[in-house]
Simulated assay, not measured.
Amino acid sequence: MKSYSIEEINELLNGIIIGNTIEKIKSAEQLDKAVAGQISFIGNKRYENLWDNSKASVAIVGQDISIEPGDNRAFIKVKNVDIALAQLLEFFAPKLPVFEPRIHPTAYIDSTAELSEDTCVGAGAYIGARVKLGKGVMIFPNATILEDSIIGDKTTIWSGAVIRERSQLGSECIIHPNAVIGADGFGFTPSETGLVKIPQIGNVVIGNQVEIGANSCVDRGKFSATIIGNGCKIDNLVQIGHNCVLGQFCIMAGSSGLAGSVTLGDFVVIGGSASIKDHVTIGSGAVVGAGSGVTGNIEAGKTVLGYPAVEAKNALKQWAILKRLVKDYGVKPQ
């Protein structure tokens, strides 16, 4: 295993070294599990008290650090600990699996599909008719790309993922295992004989540098497209309904969901297990707290909490009043 001096690590992070250590750094680890020869981080001042009991040789720290590293230990002080940590983890990250051969003989590739010279396709993958795969695309074993789909340069499709027909994915995207892009939207109407399925004839259009987590679903549009903007990050087990439109750099945490025709502006954050009613618009920079239920439009920049969701400061007041009623008067919430 290759190791690095603190000076070599700091060339990557471009911080300020405080203290010194003769230990060579072999890997990164969280503070309470780190041993000599590992680098960790202190992301917030309230975790400074954990440093004495940690055996890490080096820690990435913020500008407001108020403790000393100690003997044969060092800090690398940076402007943004989270960004520096991301750089560090990328530096130490194991290499992706190697495709040998580049196109596995058990993969099915339709004769009309277009693959770039450096495209990799794993065992058991299915590439349908008229599919176009860009430069550096990696299709892992048992992934499925159906007819007329387009995958941009350097996009990775992990095992078990399904890209349904006519889907369009941009460059440098990551589709994690068992995610489904382009399934039918949930459309039914009652009739005298039961529920009639409404055909979903649209598609899904995903921008560049989008990440879709494992077992997440993005449904195709009823007419036109469900759209995921550039840089959006979707966690595991997320549902995005038909004809939703996400702006740029939105975040949706695990088990959250959008019903059909929801519109998100740019940089919207949806907390875990939050649910958004159909045809709702959430303005740019808004935040929806975990577990919240959104039933109406949200203005740009607002933070909402609760079920039904209201502005965060109002939700906190309501909760405080409820707690006081229970404590002072024995009133129990129904």
Rank of each mutant, 00 (worst) to 15 (best):
Gly229Cys: 05
Ala253Phe: 06
Gly241Phe: 13
Glu211Ala: 10
Phe188Met: 12
Asn236Ala: 10
Ser216Ile: 01
Ala253Arg: 00
Gly213Thr: 04
Ile240Ala: 04
Ala183Arg: 03
Ala253Lys: 00
Pro190Ser: 01
Cys217Ala: 13
Asp184Ser: 09
Asn243Phe: 08
Val245Ala: 11
Ile228Gly: 10
Cys244Thr: 08
Ala225Ser: 15
Asn243Gln: 13
Asn243Met: 09
Val210Phe: 07
Ala214Arg: 00
Gly185Cys: 04
Asn208Gly: 04
Ile198Tyr: 09
Ala214Pro: 01
Gly202Ser: 12
Ile228Glu: 08
Ala225Leu: 14
Pro190Glu: 06
Leu246Trp: 09
Ser255Gly: 14
Ala259Arg: 02
Gly202His: 13
Arg220Asp: 05
Ile234Ala: 02
Arg220Pro: 08
Ala183Thr: 10
Glu192Ala: 11
Ile201Glu: 01
Cys232Pro: 01
Glu211Trp: 06
Asp219Arg: 01
Gly187Phe: 10
Ile227Arg: 13
Ser256Leu: 08
Thr189Val: 15
Ser224Gln: 15
Ala253Thr: 10
Ala183Tyr: 02
Gly213Ser: 08
Cys232Gly: 03
Val238Pro: 03
Pro190Leu: 06
Ile206Lys: 04
Thr263Phe: 00
Ser224Pro: 15
Val210His: 02
Val245Phe: 15
Gly257Glu: 04
Ala214Lys: 00
Phe186Ala: 11
Gly257Lys: 09
Ala253Cys: 14
Ile251Pro: 05
Gly231Asn: 04
Gly247Arg: 11
Gly247Met: 13
Val205Met: 12
Gln239Asp: 11
Thr226Pro: 12
Leu258Pro: 08
Gly202Gln: 14
Asn203Ala: 14
Val262Leu: 10
His242Cys: 13
Ile206Leu: 11
Gly185Gln: 02
Ala183Met: 09
Ala253Met: 05
Arg220Lys: 14
Phe249Thr: 09
Ala183Phe: 00
Ile240Thr: 08
Ser261Gln: 05
Asn208Asp: 14
Ser261His: 07
Gly194Val: 04
Ala225Pro: 10
Ile240Glu: 07
